[in-house]
Design a protein around this nucleic acid. Structure first.
Lengths: 156, 156
DNA sequence: GACTAATTTATAATAGTTCTAGATTAATGG
DNA sequence: CCATTAATCTAGAACTATTATAAATTAGTC
């Protein structure tokens, strides 16, 4: 689980300097489940550290990614999104508002490559569900919470 | 299945004009399983239609996407990728070379949202495997073609 | 073949991200 | 503490993919 303290420890271990700017980025990420973009984080951090440069936010995110402390996703075409939760979980992307919800716990079933003759070695995988969140009209549709998608019936 | 002929038909149905530039883009997509970017397609098409503008390629792709004839993916941060295969299938993204392989046929098991209380209505989903293709070292590792990933053991 | 609205082209504009050079500062050791 | 120095920070330019604009061209129709 990502915490500012943990990130500081990793920075010390790897002989990087601890600066107020970096700490502010760590704090902005701590417990953040909104899958923020670099710009989101810049705006949030700039409130506590006026004058911070975008480059610093970008650099810090890049370092955290290299250290494996955050994961980068490309849910949308126009910007990257960062997730301090590096534990396996799925995502729901609302195609109306762009918000991303985590899906954790529960039983996701098993996803596997077909047996035999695939010229690829997979290390990890990521599942993204596309649809509508409650705020955007998901609520007025039926089957809430009982959504099931099978490989033969959905875009994959 | 996407063909230039089919795209032309859809264009006529929706009262759009058939131009040599558009036909060239259709042909570049026909049977294309490389998940090309707009720039890839521009370069390919420019060989048969010198002087074609990037804007034309972008516009044609956008129209095909609206018509549901191609699907757009965001495997990488820097550019969009297009797939004329709109049938459900998974993807393997090689984290070394960036190539994307389709995974079709076979049994992928079932992926489903956990029962109960999820504020989301999913219409479709997409599974991406991250790893290494044969050309980039996948071959020298074991378990080729027998890769299995479970929700509790992989990044999702 | 002429008409007209759609399309194409070249180019400018935009957005997200990366690069650069000079100013600043964290960490270290006296 | 203070000095040293390499790492870091900032502002702004540069870069890349994509979108918008306006004038020139052309597909489709009569």
């Amino acid at each position: 689980m990502f915490t500012a303290e943990h990130a500081i420890r990793r920075y010390r271990e790897t002989r990087r300097k601890i600066t107020p700017q970096r700490i502010a980025v760590f704090r902005a990420l701590e417990g953040n489940t909104s899958h923020p973009s670099a710009e989101d984080l810049f705006e949030s951090v700039a409130r506590s550290v006026p004058g911070i440069s975008r480059a610093t936010v970008y650099n810090t995110l890049e370092t955290l990614r290299e250290l494996g402390e955050v994961r980068e996703y490309h849910f949308q075409a126009d910007f990257r999104q960062f997730d301090p939760n590096t534990a396996p979980h799925h995502h729901c992307l609302c195609t109306d508002c762009g918000r991303v919800h985590d899906v954790h716990g529960g039983d996701f079933g098993t996803v596997r490559l077909p047996a035999g003759r695939l010229p690829f070695r997979a290390d990890s995988f990521s599942v993204t569900f596309y649809g509508h969140c409650d705020r955007c009209g998901g609520a007025k549709s039926s089957r809430r919470g009982r959504v099931a998608a099978h490989s033969h019936s959905s875009h994959m």
